[in-house]
């Protein structure tokens, strides 16, 4: 089985020194993989990425991330990615990574995603150039996610990582009027077409934690204000005959470590 830790929207700034690190102290013992679901920084500045890199320093667990909208604010996202890559973080955008966890392969495909909305309440690739650009960006990043997922479908476990939401279910709690700015069904369609065991996103601070794609893939909104925890822990891929038992034992170990 694979133990996945995940959180999004940590919004690290130059005022964030030592705010995350104390709460990530037990990650190496609790998780096989640590996912960061975008909005890693407050304004997308290199100096903020350096603070995040320092918060992550010393962790042995593989860290995989996507950027979020905050990380693009200063038009310096390439520098942010380079700094995080230097710190060992795999930052994905229409790309994938395969991680070996005790002989099992875990494929993670990632993309930022974008808004656009959901059937019945969404934008269209029609009209003014600004509207077309909005929807075309959403389509482009979803296509990138689908292509990246297909690269890792051979893996024992397959995870889609994004910042924007692929489904409406994890937006419940947010005002209905802003859902088209929080996600787009193109992302869910990409996940369902390519196939995955889990889709993880952030961005919807006022949303809900749990959802599912129309094709039946688990979706988890790991935005930190939703979790109200330093990260969430998910257990994937336990053998069918003892999955409950296996994960229950892991959960007991987690509780023991927390004490």
């Amino acid at each position: 089985m694979i133990r996945v830790a995940a959180v999004g929207d940590v919004h690290v700034g130059t005022d964030s020194h030592d705010t995350l690190r104390p709460h990530w102290a037990h990650l190496d013992d609790r998780a096989d993989l640590f996912l960061l679901a975008g909005d890693l920084t407050k304004r997308g500045l290199p100096e903020e990425a350096l603070v995040l890199a320092d918060e992550l320093r010393g962790l042995r667990v593989p860290v995989v991330a996507v950027l979020g909208n905050h990380d693009y604010e200063s038009d310096r996202e390439k520098e942010v990615v380079d700094i995080l890559a230097e710190a060992g973080v795999r930052v994905l955008e229409g790309t994938s990574v395969v991680i070996d966890v005790g002989g099992q392969t875990v494929g993670v495909a990632g993309a930022k995603g974008f808004g656009g909305g959901f059937p019945g309440a969404m934008g269209s690739d029609f009209g003014e150039p600004e509207m077309k650009a909005f929807m075309r960006h959403s389509r482009t990043v979803a296509d990138g996610l689908e292509a990246a997922l297909r690269e890792v479908r051979h893996c024992d476990t397959c995870i889609a990582l994004m910042h924007y939401s692929p489904v409406e279910g994890t937006l419940r709690g947010e005002r209905l009027e802003i859902w088209p700015f929080l996600g787009c069904y193109f992302l869910a369609e990409a996940v369902d077409r390519a196939g995955a065991d889990l889709a993880v996103h952030g961005h919807a601070h006022g949303g809900s934690e749990k959802g599912v794609t129309p094709g039946g893939v688990h979706v988890r909104n790991v935005a930190q204000p939703v979790l109200r925890m330093a990260y969430t822990l998910l257990c994937l891929g336990a053998p069918a005959d003892d999955s409950e038992l296996g994960c229950a034992a892991e959960a007991d170990a987690v509780q023991e470590a927390a004490r």
Binding site: H26, L233, C235, L236, A238, S243, E244, A251, V254, Q255
Partner: peptide, 11 residues
């Protein structure tokens, strides 16, 4: 926010 005290099993 504190570290989580439990783990969710996804099947």
């Amino acid at each position: 926010f504190p570290e989580p005290s439990d783990m969710e099993a996804l099947s």
